[in-house]
């Protein structure tokens, strides 16, 4: 596995840039398209959550319940998707003996539906 060069600290800035590049390369190589799909969804959710949070802090936090519902929807969906990712990731097979990827997806769907139900109840 190509790791970042363990050079002296004088080139630390370039090494950190290199580290990030290597990280990105390693990530690209090792993750399956399925997991990449999951990751794009995760990034989208994170952006949406950040936007709502910033709006809440900068403009107004009234109505608070709508903020909590919207933000909670992003956060909840994010963690559910992240859970799905860990469950489906083949490297974690040993941890999830009882949960096959199909079952993982079914649980993810169920959890998301329950989450959205509460979100819409809380929104208005």
């Amino acid at each position: 596995m190509a790791g970042p060069k363990t050079t002296a600290s004088s080139v630390s800035s370039s090494s950190s840039a290199n580290a990030l590049q290597t990280l990105w390369k390693a990530y690209n190589d090792t993750t399956s398209p399925r997991l990449k799909l999951v990751d794009t969804f995760l990034v989208f959710l994170m952006l949406s959550g950040v936007v709502q949070f910033v709006y809440c802090i900068l403009v107004t936090n009234f109505p608070f319940n709508a903020f909590l519902a919207g933000f909670g929807s992003c956060v909840g969906q994010f963690v559910l998707t992240a859970s799905l990712r860990t469950q489906v990731n083949p490297t974690n097979r040993s941890e999830f003996k009882d949960v096959s990827p199909e079952r993982a997806f079914a649980e993810f769907a169920l959890g998301s539906i329950v989450l959205h139900f509460f979100v819409y109840n809380f929104l208005g």
């Binding site: 319940n65 909590l68 519902a69 909670g72 956060v75 909840g76 963690v79 559910l80 992240a82 859970s83 860990t86 469950q87 974690n92 941890e95 999830f96 959890g111 329950v114 989450l115 509460f118 979100v119 109840n121 809380f122």
Partner: peptide
Amino acid sequence: SRLYVAYSSWYAIGTLASMQ
């Protein structure tokens, strides 16, 4: 990761539900 999955799903859904 099991801890992560269990806790996150419990907290996210549970807290939002409890505010109802």
